[in-house]
Amino acid sequence: MAFFTNVDWAEIGQASLDTLTMLGGSLIFTILLGLPLGVLLFLTARRQLLEQPILYAALSFVVNVLRSVPFVILLIVMIPLTVLIAGTSLGVAGAIPPLVVGATPFFARLVETALREVDRGIIEAAQAMGADTKQIVFGALLPEARPGILAGVTVTAITLVSYAAMSGVIGGGGLGDLAIRFGYQRFQTDVMVVTVLLLLALVQVLQMIGDRLVIHYSRK
């Protein structure tokens, strides 16, 4: 059997583009929602600037629930909501809402952890200067935690690549969809190999970019 006889390169190209679109779109919304959520988790935790035990417990509970639902289940459970938000539960547009809901709690926790790594002395110095909470968050916490947050973005982006592939199960489009429809259901191993290799390359590139950014912004 000649290799790659089943591979339709035009379709692979389109699927790759779809995967990148799903990744980009969902990553942007994940950051837009997850960053404030992570900051809020950090600030409302015990012995922090806006200590709010009840709010923290509630946020923390929701985050934990969403994180403990397997992504495949989340995809299916969310279909009605997805239709409401994106107009469809299929294709690239239909994949983005569940990806965002799946990744946001994860990313928020990474942000919270990165903020906790900031030296408490810096917060104390800012308070001693008469800074309010907003000035402390934007002037000290976010700049100081930037390498940690960028590392979190990298991990989240890579998680989104695998989630996006999984969304092929419900017709989400992209490389995962191709792998399931051709590679798995029609036993076209060569399609499977090509899609997996492309996903692998994508993850490598993301990790490399992430590492570079972290190093660039680390001043220690």
């Binding site: 030296d119 002395g121 810096i122 104390e124 110095a125 308070q127 001693a128 200067m129 008469g130 800074a131 309010d132 000290a140 700049p143 100081e144 930037r146 912004y217 001043r219 220690k220």
Partner: peptide
């Protein structure tokens, strides 16, 4: 008023507490 007052009191620390990113 407390923040305004703190802006008129400087403080230095054992471990300096400078912003590493700035």
């Amino acid at each position: 008023a407390l923040r305004a007052m703190r802006q008129n009191i400087g403080m230095i620390f054992q471990h300096f507490n400078l912003l590493a990113s700035k």
